[in-house]
Design a protein around this nucleic acid. Sequence first.
DNA 1: GCCTTGCTAGTCAAATTTGACTACATGATC
DNA 2: GATCATGTAGTCAAATTTGACTAGCAAGGC
Lengths: 213, 213
Amino acid sequence: MSAIRLLVLGAVRQHGRAHGYQVRNDLEYWGAHEWSNAKPGSIYHALKQMAKQGLLVAHETAPSTAGGPPRTEYEITEQGTQEFLSLLRAALVSYDQGMDVLSAGIGFVVDLERAEAVALLHERVAAIEAWRASVTGYYTPTEGPESLGHIGEIMNLWVHSADAGAEWTRGLIARIEAGAYTFAGEGEPFVGVLAEGQENPYATGVPDPGDPV
Amino acid sequence: MSAIRLLVLGAVRQHGRAHGYQVRNDLEYWGAHEWSNAKPGSIYHALKQMAKQGLLVAHETAPSTAGGPPRTEYEITEQGTQEFLSLLRAALVSYDQGMDVLSAGIGFVVDLERAEAVALLHERVAAIEAWRASVTGYYTPTEGPESLGHIGEIMNLWVHSADAGAEWTRGLIARIEAGAYTFAGEGEPFVGVLAEGQENPYATGVPDPGDPV
DNA sequence: GCCTTGCTAGTCAAATTTGACTACATGATC
DNA sequence: GATCATGTAGTCAAATTTGACTAGCAAGGC
């Protein structure tokens, strides 16, 4: 599953009530258009789809104050909040979900309580280590690692990335346990969306060369 | 772009002539169903689409020898070969394309000449380093790295992954320059597909926990 | 003889993603 | 006073992906 639903649900949730263009702007503010497939079409599609599924409610609104077609505002439902939390937990734990999903999960991690975040990240490390053990055990048994030819390099790549991912996760756990950041229920939450009319300080100048793997 | 076209073109190319089910089996043999979105539907769709675009030619064949619906065999065209090489080069160089694309690229890297492979991988390292430099320069300027709150962790994740990717690539370059593997034009090519009727020695027992990021 | 399982080969509807495009208003420029 | 860029808000067709499903045949068991 892609990161879009998580991102869109999270954006709507932080706003309380938001129309598509606002969500679109938040995702750009977060840089999500750089590291996820957050194109306009995908965002509006996700909003409509999730409204159809009862995760959001749609409010038809009068034409916008500043030009353009009439907008629809969305609000998250109780069911949508459950889905958001469920997607968020999955994003933090599961290791088979591309960096976009993990990035989105990190972006919302402070919406959980500190203890749960730490627990989920520990789960993540455990999952990576289990995967690593099984894959190295499975692919390098009798005939030695060279029997695979250059195909062995693919496994080497995976293992390398897994190790880097685990190390990064351990570092994050340590920082969180040491008291970094403000989590749910710890007072003044982190403000992660643009207020109506506020301009995006990161709007341009973002580097070209592409996104991390 | 996903890795499917590269995988399918590469499989057909190595076979000379192949029907969908054969391609499907090769991808399973390569483990591609584990690290890419290579589901039956995607494979058959890619074959049809690329035939429509002139990258493959379709030959209608008599119903198969061993049950099932009539099959269509595909052969790669000159244009398809060009596309294959172009996708392959892009997969090896570009850093914004998920691990599935890179994995597929590594799987076919020996279809290039040794010198070109090394050159492309050097390009990859350079691209990663350029990206790293621009991103660290851009996001940590005046107000110190802590002004981003937990969002800074996303960048940290990217940089960590980028460094791991660069290191792995440098290692691969070193091994290739030291003479590892057999590249195009160096005699007996690596056999990467299953012959008709040959069984897949890796068919089952592949670990569960998921795929690398 | 009949039934279940498994393999071969592929199809299909629904969901998602892509990339380009529309339409309106405001402010700037020439 | 015409036109040109910019920002707001969203639509649409085409391509792709997902996940479940179909249908024929063979081997083995009972």
